[in-house]
Design a protein around this nucleic acid. Structure first.
Length: 569
RNA sequence: CGGGACGUGGCGCAGCUCGGUAGCGCACCUGCUUUGGGAGCAGGGGGUCGUGGGUUCAAAUCCCGCCGUCCCGACCA
């Protein structure tokens, strides 16, 4: 392509309301434009990168035997009602009504639709199957942000595996895991596979692929030794044992005027260190008042509570609700003697004695609490959030917490969808069994943003060759110099015939403008053709990432460039 | 959903306090000069000042409503 004919609207300044580096650079470099919050137009340059990411994903999916489909983006409500997710998805699903008054939804994901197609799989002999598509997803995010990182409309590669049994699912899960490792490697993304929560997808296991970045929205707990990595929503750590204050055998109610916090209760006469306190949090799970108990020095992780309880909707109780149901205000709450309310307690409290907690009357607390004896716990679960510096559950090393972009997610769904939608096959014994499913996603646009986030410097983007909008640019310093243009045209045509994705910068602009633009949009290799060097039969070859420039002969530059490109592809 | 900030040409901003019918830089068009790191001079085009209402002789500016965009929060009892 000739730059003079292209629409690459680069900006001198980044838009003022952009915060994330990828957002600024993708707008400034003329890759994307915002239509409204969470909806972006891909400009030609942006689409080229998007396409190249798609191509790599397709290539790796095909390599594990996956077959490409294209399913509708708009679905009837009935199929979502059948799976039970019409309600589960809540406000995050875009819903609309057609002229006949029928309820429709814009697809957030396609388990239901693919499973419906899988109704036609009738024999174990056709298993396993891996089906995928790259299709637009619509999610009414509460807060779209950071350019392409969190949007309401985006292309996603979603694949689904269908197997006769768990062993088959494990094999397909492993195939996807390895394909994802290769995909992220080819995209230049240092993705870490981590244990994750399954959220509204359901299922027995899931792994997220997390790219460390300040612009991320998830926290990953990981061991520097590399033997443990998990999403903060799932992570555990090895806790040192606590010696109970077992001398406090009797339940004693004592006055604590004005004491409202764990910290204050540590200081007060008759109080207790935080490890000997119970923190009682009043939450509303699907409309039901529930007490969540963690150790005084621990923090509750909301996602863990959601996962443990199976609840769809969760919010903290209002002060009014708390007062109505427990009879006291926050700061004096506890679960001792509470009946008729669901109580979920963290594992670290199991069997503990000699504890201190609120007495459900303002300005009063209990001490000498035995969890077994005094609290009617309905469910034990891992509810506490890991902090940096705690011990790795595998090797004991201090754990680190890193901000990450969730770039891929693979789930073992099991039979959740096949059962409700009736997708069964006959097994070798002639028995009808539900398909065992997995589901696997990669956000294409988010991958583009994640690459931009991790491949840049103060001059702009530095695309990996595999996804660069152009692999090389020929910068003609002076288009009025006939010898320059002749040489440039010949090189351009040579490179194109070698299959290199090259752009000829033939704009009538100053050299500085051309250099700055090519650096901003991140083209990996540049050949600069200027009158002075050309007089000696020389041109310049510059690698964007290192910034190093070498003088080479015009005759040899095509070979050099072709070699560099194919080595980096 | 809670809090904060913002909305003036394609981008970045000033003007608003104190009302008088819109300006700067970049970008764009024309001409001349220039030409290896975002050129200079001269001339020019482009704006319902987010939107609806109100006050006023007069509103970008003051008042009220709405819409939109961005950021933070939505566990720490």
């Amino acid at each position: 392509m000739r730059w003079s004919n292209l629409f690459i609207p680069t900006l001198r300044d980044a838009p003022a309301d952009a915060e994330a580096a990828s957002h600024k650079l993708l707008v400034q470099g003329g890759f994307i434009r915002q239509l409204h919050a969470g909806h972006y137009s891909l400009l030609p340059l942006g689409l080229k990168v998007h396409d190249k990411v798609e191509r790599i994903v397709r290539d790796e999916m095909d390599s594990i035997g996956a077959q490409e489909f294209l399913l509708p983006a708009m679905h009837p409500a009935s199929i979502w009602r059948e799976s039970g997710r019409w309600e589960v998805m809540g406000d995050e699903m875009f819903r609309l009504t057609d002229r006949k008054g029928a309820d429709l939804a814009l697809g957030m994901t396609h388990e239901e639709i693919f499973t419906t197609l899988a109704l036609e799989i009738s024999s174990y002999k056709t298993l396993p199957q891996i089906w995928y598509q790259i299709q637009w997803k619509f999610r009414d995010e509460p807060r779209p942000k950071s350019g392409l990182l969190r949007v309401r409309e985006f292309a996603m590669k979603d694949s689904y595996s269908f197997d006769l049994d768990e062993a088959g699912l494990d094999a397909n899960f492993r195939l996807h895991h390895d394909a994802y490792v290769r995909i992220f490697d080819r995209l230049g993304l240092p993705a870490i596979p981590v244990e994750a929560s399954s959220g509204s997808m359901g299922g027995s296991g899931s792994t997220e692929f997390m790219v460390p970045s300040d612009a991320g929205e998830d926290d990953v707990v990981r061991c520097p030794n590399g033997d443990y990595a998990a999403n903060l929503e799932r992570a555990t750590s090895a806790l040192p044992a606590v010696a109970d204050r077992s001398e406090l055998t009797d339940l004693v109610r004592f006055p604590t005027p004005g004491i409202r916090t764990i910290a204050a209760l540590e200081e007060v006469e008759g109080g207790a260190p935080a490890v000997h306190q119970i923190k009682t949090m009043v939450m509303v799970l699907d409309g039901e008042i529930t007490l969540a108990l963690v150790r005084g020095d621990h923090q509750l992780n909301i996602q863990k509570l959601l996962d443990a309880s199976g609840a769809i909707e969760l919010r903290p109780a209002t002060p009014e609700e708390t007062l109505e149901h427990l009879g006291a205000n926050p700061g004096s709450l506890g679960a001792v003697g509470v009946e008729g309310k669901r109580i979920i307690a963290d594992e670290s409290l199991r069997g503990r004695v000699g504890l201190t907690t609120g007495a459900n009357e303002d300005d009063w607390h209990y001490t000498g609490v035995s969890v077994e004896r005094d609290i009617a716990v309905d469910q034990w679960a891992d509810l506490r959030e890991v902090s940096a510096g705690e011990a790795c559950p595998v090797c004991g090393t201090d754990l680190e917490i890193a901000r990450c972009i969730e770039s891929g997610h693979i789930f073992k769904l099991g039979t959740k969808y096949s059962e409700v939608l009736g997708a069964t096959v006959l097994d070798p014994d002639g028995k009808n069994v539900p398909l065992v499913m997995g589901s696997y996603g990669i956000g294409i646009g988010r991958a583009v943003a994640a690459i931009a986030e991790t491949h840049r410097d103060d001059r702009g983007l530095i695309w990996p060759v595999s996804v660069a909008p152009y692999e090389a640019v020929i910068t003609v310093v002076s288009i009025k110099d006939e010898a320059s243009m002749t040489a440039a045209e010949a090189l351009y045509s040579d490179l194109r015939s070698r299959g290199i994705d090259v752009v000829l910068d033939d704009r009538n602009a100053r050299a500085g403008v051309k250099f700055a633009d090519s650096e901003l949009i991140g083209i990996p290799f540049r050949v600069t053709i200027g009158p002075r060097a050309l007089a000696d039969g020389q041109v310049e070859f510059t690698a964007r990432r290192s910034g190093e420039t070498e003088r080479v002969s015009l005759d040899s530059v095509a070979d050099l460039l072709a070699g560099a490109v194919s080595a980096a592809r």
